[in-house]
């Protein structure tokens, strides 16, 4: 398990250019917001956590094709399916590495985004907490949708359609935690993660096995 995790993290760490592009995508979405909504600092301060979360969500969606599509294209997916190592464990390592990569990108860009949107300093720790509890859930759900659509060739739009309903609760609780009393929504976020953590890798494993050509 540790060896798998080390491999996946190394693989993500080697693909810095691709993650840099996603990082820029995140910042660009944040930069677009004041142009769409107007530059009043007071309004941006109020909307900042929601805007950052929407940008993070879009970046997460965009990053998902790296999860299984690349493996299917280069043949690694076959190797994973045949392997005597439990498929769910391989998937778990993959999703963990992916979550870490997204988390790193967000942490790196959090300060610039906060400055651009005139965010309160007190919100930053809350926002970080929602990232810790929310990002893995986004990736686990994204893994399910990614596994269901991996056999289809052009799946980006379908992936978004499949995921948006499932992302709504996460978005609601994450943004509420930043804007109001944090304890209750963080608890809900944690519960969603606790529900997904043991089940999602198994669902993904079953989906990959059943949709192989």
């Amino acid at each position: 398990m540790l060896a798998l995790l080390r491999h996946e993290i190394r693989l993500q760490a080697r693909q810095k250019t691709e993650w840099a592009a996603l990082l820029l995508f995140f910042v660009l979405v944040v930069i677009l917001m004041p142009f769409a909504l107007g530059p009043e600092p007071e309004m941006l301060r109020r909307l900042a956590p929601g805007l950052v979360w929407v940008a993070a969500l879009l970046m997460g969606l965009l990053s998902l094709d790296r999860l299984f599509v690349q493996d299917a294209r280069d043949g690694t997916l076959d190797e994973m399916l045949i392997s005597p190592v439990p498929l769910a464990a391989i998937i778990f390592a993959k999703l963990a590495a992916h979550s870490v990569a997204i988390f790193v990108v967000l942490v790196v860009m959090l300060l610039p985004a906060a400055l651009l949107l005139n965010m309160d300093v007190e919100v930053l720790p809350k926002l970080l907490a929602t990232f810790v509890l929310g990002i893995p859930s986004l990736v686990l759900l994204g893994g399910i949708a990614g596994a269901l659509t991996v056999a289809l060739h052009r799946n980006a739009a379908l992936l978004t359609l499949l995921l948006v309903p499932f992302y709504i609760p996460i978005l609601i609780f994450a943004v509420s935690a930043c804007t109001g009393d944090a304890a209750q929504p963080l608890l809900f976020l944690g519960s969603i993660l606790a529900l997904l953590l043991p089940t999602a890798p198994l669902i993904i494993a079953a989906s990959l096995r059943h949709t192989q050509e």
Partner: peptide
């Protein structure tokens, strides 16, 4: 398909095959 990752070195790839 070769099932190899362009980003890794040959040694790392062999390690991964063994892990799998």
């Amino acid at each position: 398909l070769d099932a190899v990752k362009p980003a890794l070195t040959t040694r790392e790839m062999l390690d991964y095959f063994a892990v799998l």
